[in-house]
Design a binder for these strands. Structure first.
Lengths: 221, 221
DNA sequence: CGCGACTTTGAAGTAAATCAATGGGCGTGG
DNA sequence: CCACGCCCATTGATTTACTTCAAAGTCGCG
């Protein structure tokens, strides 16, 4: 546990106590760990694999809120407020999970102000990420959304040329952008055709970041 | 200051120290307090009036993220992380504001763990609100979005009949739902026509909550 | 080598944006 | 007290971009 990114900043005795109320388990691909509206009794930390947090839409389909990778967690805000979970959590592939008892988690938090501080930063970061995603999805056209999405991976402003490795299926990326996979695919095709990007599977080479930026609002980083 | 909702849970000496680094001022209607990308050097608390937090879209238009009312604040997460503000803040009408120096704010937070805890709850609540809004905006049709929006004001599950006072201009509500004001107006007209709601200016009477719910996913509360 | 999952491509349909003009309410000023 | 003007909301006509449905194409893996 101590090796997981999530527990950087925790003392070993704290981790040890958490471990007492922790369980490990495996999720098979497409297994649904949490349903929207569930009351959580534990914090989930991902050891390996990937899962998506998403909002189910009426009649097949979903909107992806977040893609969770190894060392990341989710559910803090629900535990802190004892509120129902506002999203589904689904394994995008086989996952190795850690489930930490709510009571133990909240107790450690209460006992050590510096952990509360860390968590405050974590939740703040997540809020800002969510707001950024909102900004992307609010873009009117599909080209603008994809452009914004890619531009956020630009390593530094004014960098003209960079690569992006899509960290999930295109289907899921599309659902995160509020698009269908068909539309996403077409946009990538269009941008390729114009020579702005080159697509090779899940690897996207942004060849002309200036031009790509011209499709999206100035304030996209 | 001590009367403001925001400072419930603060001790008088803490408030007094904050007051030392605080300024009051007035915003006229449509005045833009913050632009997306600004670095904040203070926490803003609203004494009276209303302002909207929104993301500017290319070529006129914006997406409203949040409507801030008296006693509410914004900007905590940016201050905590020293990140650029991801939204504009615009006065929807004349506002009486309080601006609290960043350094003083963070110092009080650091000195009193219970304040950190309060703030953690505040930011968590805001994250969950934002996710709920994301869920609403992710709905495919305009009727579903409006239905979800109205349903969240249902005082209790299974309540068949209730009223909603729109707390902002319909234009701004529409922008919060990711719709144009025209579409929003049309949807309200449609629902009125079907006898599901009655609209009287900014007062909306939901006459048949069951039927309204049938337009939106089951998990909308 | 063949199957299943993911993606791409094509054609058609539709819902919402856009453009434009009218209508209504409120405050201001005559 | 009435009249004008402004802002907001509504209504209508048109356009367009995205979704949807369908099928073919790729890729990786057993």
């Amino acid at each position: 546990m101590a090796r997981l990114a999530y527990f950087q900043g925790w003392r070993t005795d704290q981790i040890a106590r958490l471990a007492a109320g922790a369980k490990q388990y495996i999720l098979v691909k497409n297994e649904r760990l949490i349903r929207k509206g569930d009351l959580l009794d534990s914090l989930s930390v991902l050891v390996s694999g990937q899962l998506r947090l998403c909002i189910p839409l009426p009649g097949e389909g979903e909107r992806v809120i977040s893609l969770v990778g190894p060392g990341e967690s989710f559910g803090e805000s629900c535990l802190i407020l004892s509120e129902a979970c506002p999203f589904d959590a689904v394994a995008s592939r086989q996952c190795h999970m850690l489930r930490i008892d709510k009571r133990s988690y909240l107790r450690e938090l209460r006992l050590d102000p510096s952990l509360t501080e860390n968590t405050l930063q974590l939740v703040s970061r997540r809020l800002l990420e969510t707001l950024r995603d909102t900004g992307i999805c609010a873009q009117r056209s599909s080209v603008q959304r994809v452009s914004c999405y890619l531009m956020q991976f630009r390593p530094e402003p004014e960098c003209a040329d960079f690569q992006v490795r899509l960290q999930a299926l295109k289907r899921d990326i599309a659902a995160k952008l509020g698009l269908t996979q068909e539309t996403f695919s077409r946009v990538l095709g269009l941008l390729s055709q114009q020579g702005v990007i080159h697509v090779d599977g899940s690897l996207i080479h942004v060849a002309d970041a200036r031009k790509l930026a011209s499709f999206s609002p100035a304030d996209c980083r």
